[in-house]
Write a protein that binds this DNA or RNA. Structure first.
Length: 108
DNA sequence: GGTCTGACTAAAT
DNA sequence: GATTTAGCCAGAC
């Protein structure tokens, strides 16, 4: 058995996020059967490889709370805008419209 | 092996 | 209504 840790699951979910959509740490944590483990999700993404579109993961209010970990301050925002997501002041516009819930989209 | 931290969330004050 | 604390779990020191 491999170390299918929290990390791998978080990465997997992040990779499942369709372009032009974003999700929240809580949603991912909830998908991991631990809605209270949202911190683990963010922390896992802290070490996320470039293969993981962590820029599509934001906090519950759609704020790019993790952009500070990205190379460059506007990188995360531009990545989202590149996918058609409107971002303003570190916060996703139409967040409710682009919100992608794994527990809902995958288990629907 | 105990302690701390960490890209969050929600309740309490 | 805004700020603070508490809770969660897993890795790093």
């Amino acid at each position: 058995m491999k170390k299918n840790n929290f990390f791998q699951r978080v990465y997997d979910i992040c990779l499942l996020i369709p372009e032009g959509r974003v999700t929240t740490y809580g949603a991912i944590a909830k998908y991991l059967s631990s809605p209270l483990s949202s911190r683990m999700v963010g922390w896992a993404l802290n070490k996320c490889p470039e293969s993981v579109p962590a820029h599509r993961v934001v906090n519950r209010i759609g704020m790019l709370s993790g952009k500070i970990h990205f190379t460059g301050i506007n990188l995360m925002q531009q990545l989202l805008e590149n996918e058609g997501i409107s971002v303003y002041d570190n916060q996703v516009k139409d967040f409710d419209n682009v919100f992608w819930d794994p527990t809902k989209e995958l288990c629907l």
